[in-house]
Design a protein around this nucleic acid. Structure first.
Lengths: 334, 334
DNA sequence: TGTTATTTTTGAAACGTTTCGATTTTATGA
DNA sequence: TCATAAAATCGAAACGTTTCAAAAATAACA
């Protein structure tokens, strides 16, 4: 049975000093005599004393920690985002913790970290955290940066990726290559991303005076399986288009897989393009033409916003980050 | 300028009740009259009161949170691990936060979360957190599960993957296919994983009475670039083996890339196998034969250990999870 | 109505720190 | 040696909760 964790009181008692002196000593306050400090340090060491961070946070009314909330921690392309946040947070001497909002009671992670003020700031890329929660939690002393979300509120700042332009450019790429019958495969119907990418597609198609596919004809759930089914469906119904623009890479990969299985060649018979530039998009066969989102930048910019806000600057305009078209082999015969 | 967050005191004052009554009311204690509770709830709502989690944690001396410490949050194959942990933690009504140990001052994340007791338990897969820190932080009330680390200490529990057997099996697979001149490419010299995988390789080679490569001749840093250089080196020196067993997939992919670049065919000229079964290993060309680590199980088992320990069971023997050989095209002509 | 049992509310202490103003100790200068 | 300045230490309050024992209010019963 281990004895209880020793506290600053125990150290004080052992050193025959006041608690306050010990505290000062441990925090290297110049007011304590050098010899006392050394003695305190020694005794603290001997007692295996470790300050209790929670008590410290309570007193300080700050945690020096920011969090990043993701629906699915460890999703395929959050990695760079997290890195971006962490790099900036670290250089501002803040700690970063991440939490997934997916499992468990809905909103529990958000409530716990934000509403109950266990962090000093937050970056949120999680559609399942509702605006309400965010608006309520945000405050002068707890700025929140939302990613990929249309939300305008006090102490809430916004970083967006130009999904619409990305959709426009990749569609135009297809059109320039001569493809005309281009089908758009959308994601979940409540996905803003999917919607915006469609709008870009729409614009490009209009620009070329080409008839566009009805938006909601083909709808996966941003999953590879979803794409696979849609691919099967398209070919089974004998309505193969010239090209498919899938609202994300996972679905695009599923689509390609289904095509290839039944002997439809990509891109010779049908071109396929995706969106997101997830790591495997480079490795699938054929490699996937897609649109890169600047995930690292997104994280870094979001974190910078956070610290600007924490330093009192509340005049931060929403920023729109550019995407980048990445042409690979799924759209263009070598 | 936003006014200060309201506390339970403000609610009490507004309701003309004692703080303690309000606390009881908010926590649905049956001792408070129903009508009072409703009144309190209403007033709390009106004041936008949100309990301060830090104060609560301090008083309760527990956080209902466990953390998972990874060197590189968002690394390619942690995703499943995190999911495993989170699933189990959630079903035990605990929250999970994740933190990367890579950026920033070394050990800072670990110290902050573990030593300063901001969590009730931890799962650690991060070679850069040293044993010392773990041993010191661990306690009856803060069990720690270490993954892939040889560490035996009080309140520290261990979940391992049978790297040695994995190495043995994949080597045997090569030997059974007739390969004899098999080179082992190791990871960083301080990597236990790499070492164990080598031992499995050694055993298999001995079993077949084949001469094995010297262990430290070829050493990448578990990176694709490292593998690429080694591949170049091997071919440049004209000492191509029959097969290469790379201590992880990233390096294996780099090696294949370099081979293919200069016209060496995989697997016809040289077979390549890796370890870890990272997502893209399935998609590279040729697809990579590798060894799967049961990441989800690892996370789930680790979390289960944690909660067993939190519930007073300290008799948990280290567990060794089996690996699984995944044969793909990089080792075997179709 | 008075007594007792029950329900409801309360004040104070505690969790482990930091910080402030006050007090004690030591050093300084005449 | 004494007064004063400077250095070192101290005690108490505070951070925002929960909890415990006790007090107050209400209900039940004779």
């Amino acid at each position: 049975m281990q004895k209880n964790m020793s506290t600053i009181k125990d150290v004080a008692k052992a050193a025959k000093l006041a608690v306050s002196t010990v505290s000062l000593a441990l925090n290297n306050d110049p007011r304590v005599k050098e010899s006392t400090r050394r003695r305190v340090l020694e005794i603290a060491q001997g007692l295996q004393y470790r300050p209790n961070g929670i008590a410290r946070d309570l007193k300080a009314r700050r945690t020096d920690t920011v969090c990043i909330l993701l629906h699915d921690l460890g999703g395929p392309f959050y990695s760079e985002l997290i890195r971006g946040v962490q790099d900036v947070a670290t250089s501002n001497k803040y700690n970063t913790i991440a939490s997934g909002t997916g499992g468990g009671h809905i909103g529990s992670a958000a409530v716990r970290l934000l509403s109950e003020r266990r962090v000093d700031g937050a970056i949120i890329l999680a559609p399942d955290v509702d605006d309400e929660t965010i608006i309520h939690a945000a405050g002068k002393d707890l700025p929140i940066v939302v990613l990929d979300r249309n939300l305008l509120a006090e102490n809430v700042y916004s970083v967006l990726v130009d999904n619409e332009r990305g959709g426009y450019e990749v569609t135009k790429h297809l059109l320039n290559l001569g493809y005309r019958n281009i089908v758009f495969v959308c994601g979940p119907s409540d996905s803003l991303d999917s919607e915006l990418r469609y709008r870009g597609y729409e614009t490009a198609m209009n620009e070329f005076h080409v008839q566009k596919s009805k938006r909601f004809d083909y709808c996966g759930h941003f999953t590879e399986e979803g794409g696979y089914s849609i691919g099967k469906l398209l070919s089974a119904m004998g309505i193969l288009p010239d090209a498919v623009f899938s609202a994300n890479d996972e679905m695009a990969i599923g689509i390609m897989k289904s095509f290839i299985e039944i002997g439809i060649r990509v891109p010779e018979d049908v071109a396929v393009v995706g969106f997101d530039n997830i790591p495997i998009s480079e490795y699938v066969q054929p490699s996937l033409t897609t649109v890169r989102q600047p995930m690292y930048d997104m994280g870094a910019v979001a974190a910078q916003f956070l610290f600007q806000a924490l330093n009192g600057n509340s005049e931060l305009q929403p920023v729109l980050l550019p995407t980048e078209l990445i042409v690979r082999n799924s759209s263009q015969v070598k």
